[in-house]
Amino acid sequence: MSNGNGAGNGKLRIATAWLGGCSGCHMSFLDLDEFLVDLAGMADLVFGPLTDTKAFPPDVDITLVEGAVTNEDNRELAFALRENTRVVVSFGDCAVTGNVTALRNLLGEPEPMLQRVYVEHPDLDGQLPSEVVPALLPMAEPLHELIPIDAYMPGCPPSAERIKTTITALAQALIDGEPVPKATEWLFPDEARFG
């Protein structure tokens, strides 16, 4: 889209991100089948597990974020994509609620879980992962605990139909130059009191 330092080809810039999740949501995204062709017509996929880009690019229109925030890398990426994206979509149950990724929270701090997985029931030689793997955060949390979210797409995984509906609606708004449909904030009828 023609928004400053973008690609300038009039197309939307769409990204996906894969945080602490099983990538099932991305599989569901691939389930879009022929819609992927339509999508390619109106948007460029500029970042995500499906592309080769290493750093999160600037000036992205829509980012679908799969997975809970569970380690340092996730957090870094979440901040980066928030800063460079106009509409961030919390994509799938792990991003929306923490879901399976957050099951580790039941064990409290990450250490007991790591012990159980890597030392008590090792398939290989029992040792804790250290340098190569990013450090786990104390809790695995839903994405909205870390950054503001513009739209939520629950589902485990969300069906291709739901993904298509969401993307179409958001893309249409962006293309028409209309404000992204941020609904009236139902939660805070007293908003005015906060000035």
């Binding site: 839903p142 629950p154 939660l187």
Partner: peptide, 14 residues
């Protein structure tokens, strides 16, 4: 009831 995400702290009960 239009719940699409949880605004509150998850309790993670044992």
């Amino acid at each position: 009831t239009d719940v699409d995400h949880i605004h509150y702290d998850l309790q993670h009960p044992d």
